[in-house]
Amino acid sequence: MGTTVASTLNTNMKTLQPAILAAILLLLGIADLAMGMSGRAFERAKEVDEKCRNENQVERAYFEKFIKARIDQVDPPDNYKCFVKCVMVELLALNEQGEFNIDEELENVPPEIMEEGHRIINACKRTPGKGACDKAYQMHKCYHNENPELYSLVLHYWENASQ
C-alpha cells in the first residue's frame, strides 16, 4: 500500500510541476509589470512628451483625467488629439499626413506586453480618422477598446516615464 501512495504522489507531483512553473512565470511577469515598462517608446517618453505637450499646449491635468476616464466617455479638444498625433509621429508610428506605419508601431510595444500589444495593434491598424490628428486619436481609442485595463496601465507608465 505504501508503494501505491508513493507512486500516486510521484505521478501527481509530475502533473503539478508544469502548473507550478506556469504560476511562477505568471507571478514573475506581473512583478515585471509592477516595476514598469521598458522599450523604445519609454526610453524617449520624457523627450517626446515634453516636445508634444509644448507644441500642442496640452496640460498634464487633462492627461491625468484621460488616464482615469474611459476614453469613449472623454471628448478631447483638438489640441489633445494633435498631441497624440505628435507622439505617434515622434515614435515613427504615423507620418505627418496620418499614414500609419505598423512595423514601427509594433517596435514601440514594451517587451513586457509584446503578445497582447501586437494583437491590439493588428486589430486597430485600419482605423480611419478625419485628418492626421483625429486618426491618431481614433487609433488610441481603438487600442483602449481592445483592452481598457492594459491601455490605462500603459498610459500610467508613460506618465511616470515622462516626468
Rank of each mutant, 00 (worst) to 15 (best):
T4C: 04
K141P: 03
H118W: 12
Y157G: 02
T127P: 00
C86F: 13
L92K: 15
N108S: 10
M114A: 14
S162E: 13
N160M: 15
C124A: 05
E47A: 14
S152D: 08
N12Y: 01
F66K: 00
A132E: 06
I102Q: 03
G98L: 07
E47P: 01
M13C: 08
H140G: 10
Y80T: 02
M35E: 14
H118E: 11
A123K: 05
M114R: 12
C133M: 05
E115M: 13
I24G: 06
E64Y: 09
I20K: 06
C133A: 05
L155A: 10
K125Y: 06
T8Q: 10
E159H: 14
G98F: 06
L92V: 08
G39L: 09
A34F: 15
V5L: 12
S152A: 13
F83I: 04
N10L: 10
C133D: 02
I67Y: 03
F100C: 02
D134G: 01
L91A: 12
G129S: 07
R40P: 09
L94E: 15
G129E: 07
G98I: 07
Y157A: 02
A22D: 13
A41T: 11
E146D: 09
M114F: 09
K130V: 07
E159Y: 14
V89E: 15
A45F: 06
P110E: 06
R44P: 00
I67S: 01
N160D: 15
P76F: 11
K130A: 09
E112I: 10
S7N: 11
Q17N: 10
L28D: 08
L106N: 04
A22F: 11
K141A: 11
I24Y: 09
Q57S: 14
A69K: 05
L21F: 13
H156Q: 08
R70Q: 07
K85N: 11
D49K: 02
E50Y: 09
K135I: 11
V58F: 01
F83K: 00
R126G: 00
D78Q: 04
T3Q: 04
A61K: 09
A123Q: 07
P18L: 10
G36L: 12
M88D: 06
Q73N: 11
D78E: 08
N12A: 11
N54W: 06
L27M: 14
I113T: 05
F66R: 00
L150R: 01
N56Q: 14
Q163F: 13
A31M: 13
Y143S: 08
V74L: 04
K141S: 12
M13N: 08
Q138P: 04
I20E: 04
E107S: 07
D78R: 01
I113N: 00
